Simulated assay, not measured.
Amino acid sequence: MNALPQITAWSVDDHQLDPNAGIEEKLRFALRYAVLAPSNHNTQPWHFIVDGDCVTLCADRLRALPVVDPFDRELIISCGAALFNLRVALSRFGLAYAITLFPSSADVDVLAHLRILRDGRCDASLAPLFDAIPRRVTTRETFVDEFIPVELQLRLENAGATEGADIVCAGNTAIRERLATLIAEADQAQFKDPRFRRELASWIHPKRSRDGMPALSPGMRVLLDLAVPLVSSVIRTFDLGSGMAATHHALVAGSPLLVCIATGADDAAAWLAAGQALERVLLTAANDGITASYLNQPIEVASLRDTLRAALNLNSVPQLLLRVGRGRQGPHAPRRPLAEVVS
């Protein structure tokens, strides 16, 4: 089973939970859904500490990405997505809860403390998203040329707003072309940096089986003319910015909708909220058979972040940029064993 951890983790089924299970058993089972959240480079930078009817979410800074994410912004966003999955699973299991964000002024790694409320009320809006958690997948292939209905776009915007984020849906061809140009420019900037290439290569190494990213999608390998065993070493050694820029430009052109998630502030609290908004948006989309992948490069390159903000006419701060559409169901990313992320 260790050779195929994605099979172990993603095949979770709530029927495996005894209906008469106690609170702590339900809480621990819910964490099997929490860890299915997305994370940058699939680093899975979270750690949960269970104590009776409480669970504490901590950031695992050992799994940080110091080059692409020097302030741990995307790390905390990833933890926010995991927290949202936990909320959804607990609501499905009929457990109400109270959450205290950043409960320890002495330890910045402690992001949230969740306590089960025995007489509380569950959030009825969360349980319908439960079945989408194991269905959600990041799709790096081209999407079907199919318009995303305005009604669904409004639901995505409302999903993000419920978690305190601003959601901008960009389907206009001119805007998408402008964003594609920014993404290509960011690709060029990132791949010029040998530190970025080394960091990226370390997370798509073929020996990684419990975390990290697949060795690019088949479409990208064709465009870059790379064989799977060579991907890691080639990325580490050569500046592939032009190839990646062309690849991502083509992906954006073939994507019916781009979605930006933004927040009013740009601090740890805002990043945690952005992560919860991200997962609520992704699960809402997955319930409609819609998937997404990330094009965060113009946000990761500091000099382009304000340009992106202006292009989208945003008053808030962009945190994530997604392309959204209907695509082929790809394989799930691997997951670390639960014993490594829960104590």
Score class of each variant (00 low, 15 high):
L36T: 04
L36N: 08
A37W: 02
A37K: 05
P38S: 05
P38E: 05
S39V: 00
S39W: 06
N40V: 11
N40L: 13
N40D: 12
H41R: 11
H41L: 10
N42T: 00
Q44E: 01
Q44I: 04
Q44P: 02
P45S: 03
W46D: 05
W46E: 06
W46I: 07
H47N: 14
H47L: 15
I49A: 07
V50I: 11
G52M: 14
G52P: 14
D53I: 08
C54I: 04
C54H: 10
C54A: 07
V55N: 04
V55Q: 02
L57Q: 13
L57K: 05
A59S: 14
A59N: 08
A59R: 13
A59Y: 10
D60I: 09
R61N: 09
L62Q: 14
L62T: 14
R63G: 08
A64G: 15
V67E: 12
V67S: 08
V67Y: 03
V67P: 07
V67C: 09
V68F: 01
V68G: 12
D69W: 10
P70C: 03
D72C: 10
R73S: 12
E74W: 01
L75V: 05
L75G: 00
L75T: 10
L75Q: 11
L75Y: 10
I76S: 03
I77D: 05
I77N: 02
S78Y: 08
A81G: 13
A81F: 07
A82I: 01
A82M: 04
A82P: 00
L83P: 06
L83A: 15
L83Q: 14
F84P: 03
F84A: 05
F84G: 00
N85T: 00
L86E: 11
L86T: 08
R87Q: 15
R87T: 02
R87S: 12
R87Y: 05
R87N: 02
V88Y: 00
V88D: 06
V88K: 03
V88A: 04
V88C: 02
V88E: 00
V88L: 02
A89F: 00
